[in-house]
C-alpha cells in the first residue's frame, strides 16, 4: 500500500468549529472528499499535522436553487451536481463539468469545494517521493528549478479542476469563510479573482480560510456548456477544456462568457473571444473566428501528456463546436 503519513484528524460538525480547528494549528489542512489531498499525501507532497475533515458539516452540503440566486455548498458532491435536473437545465456547464471529472466513482466522493481548490498538476510533481527524489525536486516542492521549463522562474503546474472553467463562464462567485478575532469572517469573490495564474500560489485563500459556498447568477435564457479533452474518456484529468455561457436575444449574442481550463495555472477568461462575440449575430464564421482567439494568453509547457500545441488546438476546436451547439 501507499500508507498515509501520520496526522491528527479533526471531525468538526459545524463550519465555525472547522475554521477554529484550522486556525489553531498552523499547517493544518481541510479535507473534503479526499480524492486529491490524500493522493498527494500518499505521494509525500503534504505532511500536515492536522487534517480537518469537512464531510461531517451539514451546512456545507446545503444547496439553494431559489430562482434568481443559486447557492451551492462547498461540500456538495460532484455526483449531485451532475445529476441535478435544475442545474442541468439552468447551469448546464457546471453539471456537464461535474459529470466528466475523473470517473463516476470519484464523482461520488469529490466535492465542489475540493474541486475548486484542487492542487495544480504537473508530471514532475504528482509523483511518489521515490520518483521525485530520483528526478530531482522542483520549485513547487522542495527544489530550486522548474523541471518542465528549467529556464523559467515560475511554476507552470496546470489548473486541472473541471468545474472551475465552467463556473468562471457562468460568472460564479465563491464565498470564503475564516475565523478572525473570535468571529466568523465572510467574503465573496468572483472566481477570476479567486485564482492566481501561478502553479504554486494558485488560489487567494488566506491561511485557515475555507470555501463555504459557490454563488451563481441566474439569467433567464442563458445557455451554457462544457467540453473536455482527455485521452481516455474516463478517469483522466483534462488536457484542455472549454466552458461557455451565452444568451441569444433579438438575434444577437448577449452575456457571452468563455473560459478555458487546463492550459494555464488558472482557468482563463477568453476575453478576446467574448469581446468579438458580444452583441453580434451568431454567424458560424464569426463563431469560428472567435474560437481561434480562445487560447490567446495561454502558454502551457510540456508537463502533461500530449503537446502544448495540440492541447491549444483542441481548445480551439472544442470552443468552436461548443459555441455552435449553444447557438443551435
Amino acid at each position: 500500500m501507499m500508507p498515509l503519513p501520520t496526522f491528527r484528524l479533526e471531525r468538526p460538525a459545524t463550519l465555525v468549529e472547522a475554521l477554529r480547528c484550522l486556525s489553531e494549528t498552523p499547517g493544518s489542512l481541510p479535507v473534503a472528499g479526499g480524492t486529491d489531498l490524500l493522493v498527494s499525501m500518499k505521494h509525500g507532497l503534504f505532511d500536515p499535522p492536522v487534517l480537518v475533515n469537512l464531510s461531517g458539516i451539514e451546512e456545507l452540503r446545503r444547496t439553494n436553487l431559489a430562482p434568481g440566486n443559486v447557492e451551492l455548498g462547498a461540500g456538495v458532491r460532484l455526483a449531485t451536481l451532475r445529476d441535478d435536473p435544475e442545474l442541468r437545465r439552468g447551469h448546464a456547464a457546471l453539471a456537464e463539468a461535474a459529470g466528466v471529472v475523473a470517473s463516476p466513482l470519484l464523482q461520488n466522493m469529490g466535492t465542489l469545494g475540493g474541486n475548486l481548490c484542487l492542487d495544480t498538476r504537473c508530471r514532475y510533481y504528482n509523483q511518489s517521493a521515490f520518483w521525485r527524489n530520483s528526478r530531482g525536486y522542483c520549485l513547487k516542492r522542495g527544489g530550486t528549478i522548474c523541471q518542465a521549463a528549467p529556464a523559467a522562474k515560475r511554476c507552470f503546474a496546470v489548473s486541472s479542476c473541471d468545474t472551475a472553467p465552467a463556473l468562471t463562464a457562468l460568472g460564479a462567485q465563491v464565498r470564503l469563510a475564516r475565523w478572525e478575532d473570535g468571529a466568523l469572517g465572510l467574503r465573496e469573490l468572483p472566481l477570476e479573482q479567486f485564482y492566481v495564474e501561478d502553479g504554486i500560489e494558485r488560489v487567494t485563500l488566506r491561511p485557515a480560510e475555507l470555501v463555504s459556498a459557490v454563488l451563481l447568477p441566474v439569467t433567464p435564457g442563458t445557455r451554457s456548456g462544457f467540453r473536455k479533452y482527455r485521452v481516455r474518456d474516463s478517469i483522466d484529468y483534462p488536457l484542455a477544456s472549454v466552458a461557455a455561457a451565452l444568451r441569444v436575444e433579438d438575434g444577437v449574442l448577449r452575456g457571452v462568457r468563455v473560459a478555458v481550463g487546463a492550459l494555464a495555472s488558472a482557468p482563463l477568461l477568453a476575453v478576446e473571444t467574448m469581446a468579438l462575440l458580444e452583441g453580434q449575430p451568431p454567424d458560424p464564421a464569426l463563431l469560428a473566428e472567435a474560437a481561434e482567439l480562445v487560447t490567446k494568453g495561454s502558454k502551457p509547457v510540456k508537463n502533461q501528456a500530449s503537446s502544448p500545441t495540440y492541447r491549444r488546438h483542441m481548445a480551439r476546436v472544442m470552443c468552436r463546436r461548443l459555441l455552435a451547439d449553444l447557438v443551435a
Binding site: 484528524l9 471531525r11 479526499g34 493522493v39 475533515n53 464531510s55 466513482l105 466522493m109
Partner: peptide, 29 residues
C-alpha cells in the same frame, strides 16, 4: 493502486460506490 486510479477497492458507502483507498476510516463513523 491505492491511489484512486483502478477501482479494485470499490465498496458501497450507504449504497454509493466509493474508492475505499481514498476514504479515511475515521470519517465513516
Amino acid at each position: 493502486c491505492d491511489l484512486g486510479d483502478c477501482g479494485s477497492c470499490t465498496v458501497l458507502l450507504d449504497g454509493e460506490p466509493v474508492l475505499s483507498c481514498l476514504v479515511l476510516a475515521a470519517t465513516v463513523e
